[in-house]
Design a binder for these strands. Sequence first.
DNA 1: TCCCGAAGCTAATGATGTTAGCTTTACGGC
DNA 2: GCCGTAAAGCTAACATCATTAGCTTCGGGA
Lengths: 192, 192
Amino acid sequence: MPRAGLSTGRVVGEAAALADEVGLDNLTLAALAERLGVRLPSLYKHVDGMPALQRELTIRAKLEMTNVFARATVGKSRGDAVRAFAIAYRDWAKQHPGLYAAGVRAPRDGDAEDQDASAAAVEVVFDALSGYDLDEATTIDAVRTLRAALHGYIGLEVAGGFGLDRPLDDSMEWMLDALDTALSRTDLEASG
Amino acid sequence: MPRAGLSTGRVVGEAAALADEVGLDNLTLAALAERLGVRLPSLYKHVDGMPALQRELTIRAKLEMTNVFARATVGKSRGDAVRAFAIAYRDWAKQHPGLYAAGVRAPRDGDAEDQDASAAAVEVVFDALSGYDLDEATTIDAVRTLRAALHGYIGLEVAGGFGLDRPLDDSMEWMLDALDTALSRTDLEASG
DNA sequence: TCCCGAAGCTAATGATGTTAGCTTTACGGC
DNA sequence: GCCGTAAAGCTAACATCATTAGCTTCGGGA
């Protein structure tokens, strides 16, 4: 009988694909093993159990998001950067719902690799807002607001929480306009 | 041996308390039964399994939130109403993290009771924003934005996703100011 | 060629959710 | 006050899942 030829990377990759299909909550080692054509305990040669697999997914998600969002916002600033970031964020989250769910988990204390991945992802948001010339405190406020708005919007959207009769794109556009308005106001105040 | 004297209400109530303590993801019928001083299968006399229990929690959460938020915003309007709503929202979510997590789940198609509870909760947000005199489409945009901003903020906050060196209250305040600014701007445009 | 490490397997264990069917309690009707 | 019945709670059994232990075998490097 030939070997399956697994590796940690392949196991995590298939786990991500499976999570996108059935939801992160329904990701199970049993289904993952079957998908890989292998018995369940064999997975332990590549991944140290379910909690460790979830952690791997979290880190992979953060790294991918960092890349995608950085590429989407490069060369843009202010409102353009915010819009490009928002659209990339939403598209990626909808294409990878399981991995996205893994990506919004906070690192555990002392987990340096996860902490680094998180910091890099937040850094992209900082960069996207750098064109507004905000002071330090306001920048943090704005980064938190943008992250919260997008995270909440996506969360409610994929959960089906928006039942009202109006296109979701339009409301997202209004939300981004509102943020741009607030940022420009702060910008003027700070420089005036 | 005397009876435990359970009821559906008591079971769901203890489930909510347990979920708040250990997290909704870690809520288990086994622990719930032990907490109630009863064997696990006995729970099935009052609740129709784990999925049904989660649904009960979802509905209970929406009803409670509707009451709390309505009471918090009564007699207030515009920025005051938005602030009061936001504070009540955040306080309640932090006091009831498990129940809150259950409360942000969308109803399943055809589940009239859950749909009604959801509609009532959204209605409170509409009422809170009524003082801005927005047109219908803008109202929907604003309701979605406010819900998304708060849901995202709470989600990131309880997940420990905000690692930066600035008080969380201050950033929330900035976010609410930004929204108020946007709403007042729209207000002026619409009436000017 | 040999050999050793890693890949994958079987077997066993414990936790959980679920169903079936039994016993017993408590309450309402007589 | 008694008695029958519906509901409450129980034991037993089973399926699924995660995890650990220990075995077998493949495959590349000395």
